[in-house]
């Protein structure tokens, strides 16, 4: 039998895979529907292996659940959410920029949240429920990192770096040991942990400056300034190591670096929180 030419009916099933979040998109799409990454721009990977987080075009729309998110602005981008009825998202309340009055608000109670004080307040996660619009932005130049989480993913994020998360994602936080004496005046550093179980979810972070990501192989390590750490897969281990910057008899100072060991993804921000050396 002769081979027939592919029928035109097959063509609508052609798909482009987003190289950032692996979602499948229609052939004609210019930006990924799940993470907003431009699909017509190739990956920007440095020779050392860091990939630049996709620069989301102004006014890009991202879909999740029954809601959409529009990313506006390129200096300090704002994420504007149009919540579907009964769809909800959670966030730290100080990132709210504006909202419509009809968006219902509630708070999520967290064990340990009262101990983890933030700016003199107990740490409380706020929940907004649709229908209605609400927008978020943070306080410094940077970019939004849109991370659609597939089922069964676990991601650790630097504290206060997450802008919002869809309600399917389970939220908890862990305290990073070993950093307690260096960071934040002895309070230690917390990492927010986001876990998906059965359903996928959307997580949006705000990184200061530019954001870069790399995928570490099993056992591969990279040393990162702790203030630059933005997120990691929970399979990546984080250990703080001290390096003495010797000055002979005169003591010198100690520099701390975070050793991240694979397998998994690591994200860093280029405008980092500077911690004083000991």
């Amino acid at each position: 039998m002769m081979e027939t030419a592919p029928s035109p009916a097959v063509e609508p099933f052609e798909r482009i895979q987003c190289q950032w979040c692996q979602s499948m998109n229609e052939k004609s799409a210019l930006a990924c529907h799940a993470c907003g990454a431009p699909l017509d721009i190739r990956n920007l990977v440095s020779e050392s292996g860091w990939r630049e987080a996709p620069r989301i075009r102004d006014m890009t729309e991202i879909q999740f659940n029954s809601s959409t998110c529009q990313v506006e602005g390129e200096i300090v981008p704002a994420a504007e959410i149009n919540l579907g009825a009964n769809d909800s998202i959670f966030f730290e309340h100080h990132v709210m920029l504006w909202k419509e009055e009809r968006v219902a608000m509630s708070v999520m109670s967290l064990s340990g949240g009262l101990k983890r004080a933030f700016a003199g307040m107990p740490f409380i996660i706020s929940v907004a429920t649709g229908p209605g619009r609400i927008a978020f932005s943070r306080d410094a130049t940077g970019e939004l990192v849109v991370l659609p989480l597939h089922p069964g993913m676990e991601l650790d994020v630097r504290e206060h770096a997450f802008l919002l998360s869809s309600h399917q994602i389970d939220y908890s936080f862990v305290r990073v040991k070993g950093l307690s004496n260096i960071l934040f005046g002895g309070q230690g550093m917390y990492m927010d942990r986001f876990v998906t179980t059965g359903a996928p979810g959307l997580l949006i972070l705000h990184g200061y400056g530019n954001v870069f990501e790399r995928r570490l192989q099993l056992g591969e390590s990279i040393m990162v300034e702790p203030g630059a750490f933005l997120y990691k897969d929970s399979s990546v281990t984080l250990n703080v190591e001290f390096q003495k910057l010797g000055a002979g008899f005169f003591g010198g100072t100690t520099m701390s670096l975070a050793r991240m060991t694979g397998p998994g993804r690591v994200g860093i921000q280029s405008m980092y929180v500077h911690h004083h050396t000991e």
Binding site: A104, M105, S106, V107, S109, L114, P122, I124, S126, V127
Partner: peptide, 16 residues
Amino acid sequence: HPASSFITWKPWNNRY
């Protein structure tokens, strides 16, 4: 005032 399932002793903590 967001809906809240727990009661804090400082209700003003919980207000936008």
